[in-house]
Design a protein around this nucleic acid. Sequence first.
RNA 1: GGCGGCAUAGCCAAGUGGUAAGGCAACGGCCUGCAAAGCCGCUAUUCUCCAGUUCAAAUCUGGAUGCCGCCUCCA
Length: 487
Amino acid sequence: MTIHIYNSLKRSKEVFETIEPGRVKMYVCGPTVYDSCHIGHARSVIVFDVIYRYLTAVGYDVTYVRNFTDIDDKIINRSNELGVSPESLAEKYIDEFHFDMDGLNVLRPTLEPRATDHIDHIIRIIEILMNKEYAYAVDGDVFFSVDLFNGYGKLSGRKLEDMEAGARVEVDQRKKNPFDFVLWKASKPNEPFWDSPWGKGRPGWHIECSAMSEDYLGASFDIHGGGKDLIFPHHENEIAQSEAAFGKTYVKYWIHNGFVNINHEKMSKSLGNFLMIKDIVKEYHPEAVRLFLLSHHYRSPVDFTDQGIKNVAAGLDKIYALLERAEKYLGSLPDANSDYNKDVIPPTKDFRSLFSSAMNDDFNTAQGIGVLFDAVRNINRLLDQTNQTDDIENRQLIHNECLNIIKIGKILGLPSESPRTYFKQKKEKIINKESFDAETIEAMIQERQDARKAKDFNKADEIRDRLKSMNIEIEDRPEGTIWKVLS
RNA sequence: GGCGGCAUAGCCAAGUGGUAAGGCAACGGCCUGCAAAGCCGCUAUUCUCCAGUUCAAAUCUGGAUGCCGCCUCCA
C-alpha cells in the first residue's frame, strides 16, 4: 500500500514517505478566532480531519497539531468594537469553533496550541533570525529580509522581481524589500503587548506557526496543511523563517485545500454572503455537509448551493436506509472495530480495498464515496435476495459488507450514527419546525390503514397526498407502515 | 503585469495514455391495491473547440475560446 500525495511544493503527486517510519507529524493552520466559522473553515477542517483519520486507520502514529491564532490585528479591532478584551473574544470563538466542529463530527487534533502561549518561543526564534542577520529591527518592529533567504518563493512559484509590490497596498518605506514581512510588531497604546528585546509588542502572523510547529513537531516535519490562499504569503513566509532559523527543510509535504463558493460567488465581506456553519446545520444534517464537501476532490473549488446539498442529503438518506434495513436483518450492525467473518466466500468486489485505493491516490474522497454507494447498492441487492437464500453464509456475507461500510464511515466521518438515531432526529427536526406532532401523523397513518383495509383506496390515497404536502412520505413495509421526512 | 487552476450527461462529480465510477433527476421494468423504498434496465460512440504526437488520448503537446483563483486579511 502506497499513498500518493499532491505536494504543493513540487506541484505534483509524490509517494508519501514519512521522515520517521510509522510516524506522521502534521500541522494545519487553524482559525484566527475573531468571528464565527463559515463553510470554508468547515471544508479545510473536514478535509484534514479525513486525512488524519485515514493515516491513523492505515496504522500511522499521527501527531496532528492545529493552532488557534488568538492574537492579531483583527482580534484587537473586533475586541475594541465590542468593548471586550482580546482574550475573552478569542475564548468565545474558540468555544464556538469547538462547538461547530464537534457538531460536524470532526475529531479533535492531538494538540491545539494557541499563539499567546508561545510568545517566549516566538521571541527566541526572532532572536535567532536577528543573530543570523535574516531579520532587522526598525522602531520596535522586526522584519524578515526576504532577499537574504535563498529560495524565497519556492512554494508559491513566484520570483521576487516578478511580483508587483504595492499594487494594492501601500508599502512600508522602512522595509528593505517591499515583501519583507513583520516578525514582531510594536504595540500601539491600549493594545495588548508582551515585552521583548525590541520593546513592547506582539508577534507577527506568520511566526507563530513556525514556533508552534517546532515546539511540538520539530524543525522538520511531514505534512503542513491549510487553505489554498495561505500559500502566499503565509506559508511562503513560514518556510523562510523556519528554514533560515533552523537550517533544515521545514516541511516535506504541503497540502492545500480549495475554496468554497456560494452560488458561484466567492464568499466575501462586500457580498455579505458568508455562510456560517451554525446556520447551515440548522437546515441540513451535519453529515450531509460532510458528504457534500467530501464529494469533491479537496483541491477543487466547491460551489455550495441549496440544490447541491439537497441532492447529497438524499444520498445520505439512502445510506442510512440501507443500514436500517441491514440492522433489521442482522439483528445488530457490526461494530467498527470488530473483525470480518472469515468463512465467507470472497465477494466479487472488495469495496474496502477499492476505497483504500481511492484514498491512497491523494485522498480522493470523491472516488471513495463512489465506492461507498457501490457497496450500498451491493448490500441492497443481497438483501433483496435474502428471501431465497436466508442462510448463515448469506448473513455472514452481509455482515462483512456492512462492516465495510462502517469502516469506511469511520474514515469519512459518515455514516456515524445509528440509523434509528438518524431518522429520529430528522423527524424531530420537522416536528419542531412545523405545527404538527408525531401523534397527528400516526393517527393519519392509522386512518389510512383502516381505509385500506376497507378497500377505500381513494381515501387512503387522499391521506397519503395530505401527508406528502406536509413533507412526509410513507412506506408500506411488510411489517407495517413507516413514515419519514422528505429531504 | 506576474503566477496558477478549471472546462466530462439535465445537474453534481471521479477518472491524467488502454477504450467514460458514483450521486441527484428523468424514463421503462420487477415489486405494490396504487405508491414509496429497493433492485434491474435505460440515459455521454464521447469528455469546450482546432491541430499534433501515439497502435491507442477525456487523459500528452501546441493553439483558440470561456470561467476562476492568488499576488492585501482570508480556509
